[in-house]
Write a protein that binds this DNA or RNA. Structure first.
Length: 603
RNA sequence: GCCGACGUAGCUCAAUCGGCAGAGCACCCGCCUUGUAAGCGGGCGGUUAUGGGUUCGAUUCCCAUCGUCGGCUCCA
């Protein structure tokens, strides 16, 4: 496909520029803090970082100084010299750099590379030197510091980061920088960042009055404003329609359950950290549910099931509560109260592939509807090391179900990537990865196989031979949660929702008070047709009314003055700025109803 | 949870060195009666996140708590 034609980032000149800029930055930092310890500094998307262990915290003023010094180093036109060394030589060179020694040990054993990833082969150990600075590094770099344009890089910010990404390790100071081929590229990138901020769902969500947070209610607990309420209703309507067609059955379950249920499900040992602590009444502990599955399992178990009944698809927009750590909260994308587009599908093994693919098919239908194109389907697998800890200890079933998912995806011609050590505790899954406008990655939809929990609940159906069999369970959430989906959609559409999803379909704008009555009549007529509409009869001028409707991104504005009133017509202004005069009200209603009914992306 | 930054009216932001807390928008009341992105005037609105401390005096300096933001870790 297209990626194959493109040069790999790792092979690009830009990658070398960024990698080299990181080294130059490290030199500048070490000059400022001669006792500072360096760790690693790789290129990343759009730039690079370097992690340091320093005697004091860096300030924005420090960054300016470092940036200045970097420009001086660049101006020195130093070459990047590579040298392959033995582990002992390397240890001598980096005798005052404990983190480097740790890396050298890892390289020597052949166990791990500089980022802590396991390596298959024992790598050679190499160093790169520019000017006075030498770093343990496999490269590649630019030939000479002069290849880095002094006006095409910028240090962005300082952040904490754990050594080797492990929260049990020491926290280091990470400096992020961005670097480009030219000043123009840098400016373009910075402009894009500013543009992205404008469509940030946290900003737009407030401006469009979709949701709010209140300190007194609590962090991560969004309050849906009326406009958000409308969007939720629309999404649920959509889900119910689609699921009804696909043979799902709707169920409802309580927000609370006894501790026993989560002990039985096996969630508590894996999940207690992310659950609100229990409340105890009359000696019984109750938990607020972080997921719906155990209760759906109980519904499955509530009567005898035959193979003829399968697949059984139980769906619920259940409200769950998860105690996400405070620093993990992020607008609507990461919250503590959430409503999942949840369903659990119970299948026999031979039904699995078809059912799994029909779930994937459902995702793709939704993505097409929303025009979602930038995503990656990720097959999340277990890791051998995690068995019995993060994952149910049954390697045979892991390998088997992973292969089942792999086959399903291959047979369905659905492109995907594989990721080790990313599975759910009870089985492999397909996660749909998307990115927020500021570049944070999230799983939107998810489709998970569960080979472990049904057995714990004694779930069974009677097969053709009259023998009990344990069903597999597919957990799926194609529309994610209301919170994450709406957060994503706000950014995806930059607030310009398709008509059906817009909180307000139509704003009627009388030009003078004399048309207020007519405007109100129109509102009544539209409302009778199921159109969401309001009339702006404020004391503002028409221009101001149009402006406020535009700012709220209302798709249709009906401007009515004396002429329209006399003729029983409207002047239609569409959100995109286009305008059509002298339209019969009935014609407009037909157009709006058509767009809404079809969930059309057209205005 | 961890590292760092930040918190002023409903919103967006000012306030010199520690010296009477201000503007625009929104809202309310008037005037204007208007043709496709802001008509004009007036009014309301603050224990400067919360609680302590230093000081004659704190939005400003210090400490703690809460919250938000940038990352890390984690995740639907």
């Amino acid at each position: 496909m297209e990626e194959q034609k493109q040069e790999r980032y790792e092979d690009s000149h830009l990658y070398r520029i960024r990698h080299s800029a990181a080294h130059i930055m490290a030199q500048a930092v070490l000059e400022m803090f001669p006792d500072g310890k360096v760790t690693i500094g790789p290129p990343v998307e759009n730039g690079f970082y370097y992690d340091f262990d320093l005697p004091r915290n860096l300030t924005p003023e420090d960054l300016e100084q470092i940036e200045k010094r970097m420009r001086q180093i660049i101006a020195g036109k130093f070459g990047f010299e590579k040298k392959v060394v033995s582990a002992d030589e390397a240890r001598k060179i980096f005798k005052d750099q404990p983190y480097k020694i740790e890396l050298i040990d890892g390289l020597e054993k052949g166990g791990f590379d500089e980022y802590g990833n396991p390596l298959k082969e024992k790598p050679e150990i190499s160093i790169y030197q520019q000017d006075t600075f030498t770093d343990l590094c496999r490269g590649p770099h630019v030939q000479n510091t002069k290849e880095i344009k002094p006006d095409a890089f910028k240090l962005m910010n300082v952040a904490g980061a754990y050594w080797r990404g492990d929260e049990h390790n020491k926290m280091l100071q990470r400096i992020y920088g961005t670097a480009w081929e030219s000043k123009k590229d840098l400016e373009n990138y910075l402009w894009q960042l500013e543009e992205a901020k404008k469509r940030d769902h946290r900003k737009l969500g407030k401006e469009l009055e979709i949701f709010t947070f209140d300190e007194e209610v609590g962090p991560g607990l969004p309050l849906w404003l009326p406009n958000g309420g409308v969007m939720i209703e629309e999404l649920e309507k959509l889900a119910k329609e689609m699921e009804e067609k696909a043979g799902y059955l709707r169920v409802r379950t309580p927000h609370l359950t006894k501790e026993d249920l989560f002990i039985r499900s096996g969630h508590l040992p894996y999940y207690a950290e992310s659950m609100y602590p229990p409340m105890e009444l009359e000696g019984v502990k109750y938990y607020v549910k972080p997921m719906n599955c155990p209760m759906h399992h109980k519904i499955f178990a509530s009567k005898g099931r035959s193979y003829r009944d399968l697949p059984i698809r139980l769906a619920e927009y259940g409200t769950c509560y998860r105690y996400e750590k405070s620093g993990e909260l992020f607008g609507l994308m990461r919250v503590r109260s959430l409503q999942m587009n949840d369903a659990h599908i119970y299948v026999s093994e031979d039904q699995f592939e078809q059912e799994f693919l029909s779930v994937v098919d459902l995702y793709l239908k939704y993505f097409k509807l929303f025009g979602i194109e930038k995503y990656v389907m990720r097959l999340s697998l277990h890791s051998k090391a995690g068995l019995g800890k993060k994952y149910v200890d049954n390697e045979r079933l892991w390998l088997k179900t992973e292969e089942m998912v792999r086959n399903a995806m291959k047979n369905g011609n659905v492109p995907y990537v594989e990721a080790e050590d990313e599975a759910a505790f009870y089985g492999p899954k397909i996660d749909v990865q998307i990115w927020s406008v500021i570049g944070k990655e999230f799983s939107l939809a998810t489709n998970q196989v569960d080979f472990a929990v049904p057995a714990r609940f004694d779930l069974k159906f009677t097969n053709k031979e009259g023998v009990d069999e344990i069903p597999l369970c597919i957990h799926r959430a194609p529309l994610s949660t209301h919170e994450r989906m709406i957060g994503f959609l706000i950014e995806h559409y930059a607030g310009n929702f398709p008509v059906w999803l817009s909180p307000e379909h139509v704003r009627v704008i009388p030009i003078t008070d004399a048309q207020n009555e007519y405007a109100i009549q129109i509102v009544q007529q539209l409302r009778d047709q199921g159109i969401r509409v309001s009339a702006d009869i404020s004391a503002q001028r028409m221009n101001a009314k149009i402006r406020s409707a535009q700012l709220m991104k209302v798709p249709y504005m009906l401007v009515v003055g004396e002429n329209e009133m006399k003729a029983g017509q409207v002047s239609l202004r569409v959100r995109d700025g286009s305008q059509q005069n002298n339209i019969a009200l009935g014609d407009f209603i037909a157009r709006a109803k058509d767009r809404i009914a079809k969930r059309s992306p057209e205005l």
